[in-house]
């Protein structure tokens, strides 16, 4: 960089008042358009010239109903794309049925940023350290993607394709994040490691989710943030525990598997070896916490 910009580049700003209108704008401008939710990722990136300036910014905030948070015992939780992190975090429904999601969101940024930012924006930016991603991965969220041509449902496990890359096409929007009801006897935990206690990025994030049948683990889901090009599910660690009891030994085995499988980058935020070590520590802690929580 040779100029430190203080000004945003020029772009057109439109605020559609219906989903159709928004989709038709995206359909028309394609790669030249960018949807805007809270703007806490988009605006700093555009200002810092980290991404090419869009020609048109399509603000989703005036589309009615897009911020709804609803829960139904059979369908589960539905987060409208414009539901802010603060509203999801504080929702009584979320706290009651998905405490791990609420807790994961509380680790993010600051109250001010959470008041503005959306969960959808967090996963659309698709950085490896996105704090909502590991939790959504273990809760097996499904995303509703809509364009003028139609809609499709994409499991979040298939959503991320690389750093800052997803299956979203230019003319598509996420309108909903659907999270199935957690099975009975399930427990989940998200642990985030960052140098500071608040307003910081994850050096490693670990989400663990276990469904038990009696003492044995009948379903195990472990997801990791910040240790691969995308947030990932960690199959080897999961299978290390499946069908077993949660004991110090089985937990140890799963944590070691998670750590040996991960392929983080070595950068100024942390060395690869440290990140792998921390995957071990955090996976063990998360599973131990689950073990110790009463069902």
């Amino acid at each position: 960089m040779t100029t430190f910009y203080r000004r945003l580049p020029r772009f057109d700003y439109v605020q559609p008042t219906s989903l159709d209108e928004a989709l038709s704008l995206l359909g028309r401008y394609k790669a030249d358009a960018k949807p805007l939710a809270g703007g806490t990722d988009l605006i700093p990136q555009v200002k810092g010239r980290d991404m090419a300036a869009p020609r048109v910014v399509v603000d989703l905030k005036a589309i009615p109903g897009l911020d709804a948070i609803t829960y139904d015992a059979t369908k589960g939780l539905t987060l409208g794309a414009m539901a802010t992190i603060a509203n999801v975090e504080r929702s009584v429904l979320v706290r009651e049925h998905y405490p791990m999601l609420s807790n994961a969101l509380t680790t993010m940024a600051s109250p001010q940023v959470r008041n503005r930012a959306t969960v959808t924006g967090n996963i659309c930016t698709a950085v490896p350290s996105a704090d909502s991603a590991p939790t959504l991965l273990v809760l097996e969220a499904v995303l509703k993607l809509v364009s003028q041509k139609g809609e499709r449902l994409v499991p979040i496990t298939q959503f991320f394709t690389g750093p800052r890359q997803t299956v979203l096409t230019y003319d598509e929007l996420i309108t909903e994040i659907r999270i199935p009801s957690p099975p009975p006897k399930s427990r989940g935990v998200y642990l985030k490691l960052s140098p500071r206690k608040s307003m910081d990025l994850a050096v490693v994030g670990v989400a663990a989710f276990v469904v038990r049948d009696g003492e044995t683990c009948k379903d195990v889901r472990i997801a990791l943030g910040a240790v691969a090009p995308t947030p990932i599910r960690e199959a080897r660690a999961e299978s290390a525990l499946l069908g077993k009891k949660l004991t110090d030994e089985s937990i140890e085995e799963a944590a070691s598997a998670a750590s040996s499988e991960c392929r983080p980058i070595d950068d100024h935020r942390a060395a690869r070896e440290y990140r792998c070590d921390m995957v071990y520590v955090l996976t063990r802690r998360a599973l131990t916490q689950i073990k110790e929580e009463a069902l």
Binding site: K197, D200, H268
Partner: peptide
Amino acid sequence: YEEFIIDQGHTRNSTFLDYKMPRSTD
């Protein structure tokens, strides 16, 4: 907490996102 990480004259942590000053919570 704090330190500029410099590689061949290029500072890798050029913003307060990556240059870690302690916050009130720390």
